[in-house]
Write a protein that binds this DNA or RNA. Structure first.
Lengths: 356, 356
DNA sequence: CCTTAGCACTCTCCCGTCGTGAGTGCTAAG
DNA sequence: CTTAGCACTCACGACGGGAGAGTGCTAAGG
């Protein structure tokens, strides 16, 4: 019935008006009237003219009215068009770039801390929720492994990945081992397996076990035992979230039902990871709006995401999550820049000396 | 004008009625009418009689009416009385005790993971927000310290506390050190300083430096350098929170203003720590209701808290945070039991073999 | 043919009114 | 001291009308 006319090439003026409507709506969060667009004066057209165009735009499916006598609101299609060709993605202001750089390379830090900083930066600079998916440890390359005696047969296993991630885990050995022995085991494993992914290492250990079952010396036997326990880090890709508090001030969250659904969305980390993982490959920023995905559907929320990684190897993803009515002009460059910088920071922490 | 009569000893019947009102309110979250108390039939009194008593209780300051023609609602004083002498703190059901025990001593874990489990248990079993304050690392006793080479001059410092807490930190040494040297340094420091608190160690290192400035050998010099960097862990007492989602379902959070204030409260971790730290000393559960404290004032929220620690040494605090209308009969035993079990779990992780 | 002024129309939103029902306080009888 | 009865109060929801914002349409003007 509505939107009969299939969307076609918009005239430049239509585009200008659509753009103005979207920008106004992003600022005000309220339906935009023809009059307000006209009064803004950028185009020198009367409200009536604007009105005609807006009626067209509604027919093409770019605008919608909450009710007859209200202004108009952009649709998902409008946001997509806006992002693709209407907005001018201004570069991130120098101040913010500097701020990001400083925050990211402040004092020596492990990759985990860098991730936390990144999450905080995302939310701080966008006033939305910042999300970072940390790498799945199984895919990560071993740099060093080390064991420390705790009490009794308990041993602390410290794993350092090539990208600077550190994880530790308490394991229980079959017999009590003295510190020196643990050091030897650590050395042995580090020397033999550094550079392989944890997944590969596990496979090689199994092969070793099968092969030399008879003639294994004690060091090897113990090494295998401890390594299997210590490297069985769950595949947990972590999800870091920050800025939930900021986003509560958004007018779209004036209704508590929505707040609840939002938090349920956050609670379901698995789904978050699944969605964001799709943004891993392919460089550049991806934007998921409204019910492009079940995740953001009912909330009218959007996700601006990109991947990060070292070299060609994708490691994880980062994103901003907020109302569809979002300052894409600011937020997209932010995600873009931060993704790049995060990758750089990890590469440095990997390469060591590559500091600028 | 109101509450003219100073509160005196309540008659047994008054107490029974007050108790019923509180219990009913805790369940329903709605003002309790005389009729509903009467109909419940536990006392066999008519609504009118109940009404008289309730009028008295209001005068003594135990009940309040939101408006003239509404039922009555307990005041802070009522909750305090309830907790002290009206309620029967039933023991935690065996099922829940078992669940806690299992969750807390599942597979070898470091103290940090235990803390996380505890936080989750608190919120899960109470449907409120669970809070755990982790120990200030400065007060903690060193068990072992270890260094791992990263890239270049970067070194990963792993500190294990006597209570099973593990922390790592990336530091930068003055010169690049090989793995063996780092192991030697770690051994040296562990042997000489295990058992002292980090604070003491820092003091002793300073003394050492001053004293032997001239004749320091290289090992000592390097040890001092690395230890100073590695042990300068910020005094950060962590705050773990869980269950924010659950608490959103409470009817008291139907208003978003409150939700916001709640999250602001959570964001101000420093104040949370300060308040909870008061619950460290003195064993037993402490309850802070409504505006006994600025923190919970406007929200009409309460805090049920207790401390945990190993032996005589208090380490941190744990608490449940939720609407004043809270199932104290369930929640207080829960906090009590969990505090005890958490202390036990840490003691075991310390003592090593003390497992049941 | 495009633009614009004018105007009627349609909604939502805001208020004030009113009826209803829950709950109370008081009084008088048991 | 308890309880039934009754009048009173007050929040809540429904109803209704007026105001204002915004639209769509039409007809005049460049």
């Amino acid at each position: 019935m509505t939107s009969s006319q299939p969307p076609r090439q918009l005239s430049p003026r239509d585009r200008e008006i659509l753009r103005d409507v979207i920008v106004a709506y992003i600022l005000s969060a309220e339906p935009v009237s023809s009059r307000s667009v006209s009064k803004q004066g950028r185009l020198g057209l009367s409200a009536a003219t604007i009105r005609n165009v807006m009626a067209d735009l509604e027919e093409w499916g770019y605008l919608a009215q909450p009710h007859t006598s209200a202004g108009r609101v952009p649709t998902r299609a409008a946001y997509h068009l806006f992002i693709e060709s209407l907005m001018q993605a201004r570069r991130l202001p120098a101040r913010e770039r500097r701020y990001i750089d400083e925050s990211l390379q402040s004092s020596p830090a492990d990759a985990g801390q860098i991730m936390e900083s990144a999450t905080k930066l995302l939310s701080e600079l966008s006033h939305q929720v910042g999300i970072v998916v940390t790498p799945a440890l199984g895919e990560t390359v071993l740099k060093a492994i080390d064991f420390l005696p705790l009490s009794g047969r308990r041993v602390l296993c410290v794993v350092v990945s090539g990208d600077g991630f550190v994880d530790n885990k308490v394991i229980e050995s079959e017999e009590e081992l003295p510190r020196e022995e643990l050091v030897r085991i650590g050395n042995y494993l580090t020397e033999n397996f550094a550079g392989a992914t944890l997944r590969e290492i596990r496979a090689r250990l199994l092969a070793l076990m099968a092969e030399e079952r008879a003639q294994m010396d004690q060091l090897l036997a113990r090494s295998i035992e401890l390594a299997r326990a210590g490297l069985s880090l769950e595949q947990r890709q972590g999800v870091l979230l920050d800025g939930t508090r900021e986003v509560l001030n958004q007018p779209e969250l004036a209704d508590i039902g929505r707040v609840r659904r939002l938090f349920e969305t956050f609670a379901d980390k698995a789904r978050l990871v699944a969605l964001l993982s799709q943004c891993l490959r392919g460089n550049g920023v991806r934007v998921v709006i409204g019910d492009d995905s079940a995740l953001t559907s009912e909330l009218d929320f959007s996700l601006v995401a990109t991947g990060y990684g070292v070299g060609e190897r994708p490691l994880g993803a980062l994103a901003i999550f907020g109302p569809s009515r979002m300052e894409y002009e600011r937020v997209i460059p932010l995600v873009d820049y931060l993704g790049e910088r995060l990758s750089r920071a990890l590469a440095e922490s990997f390469a060591g000396e590559a500091r600028t």
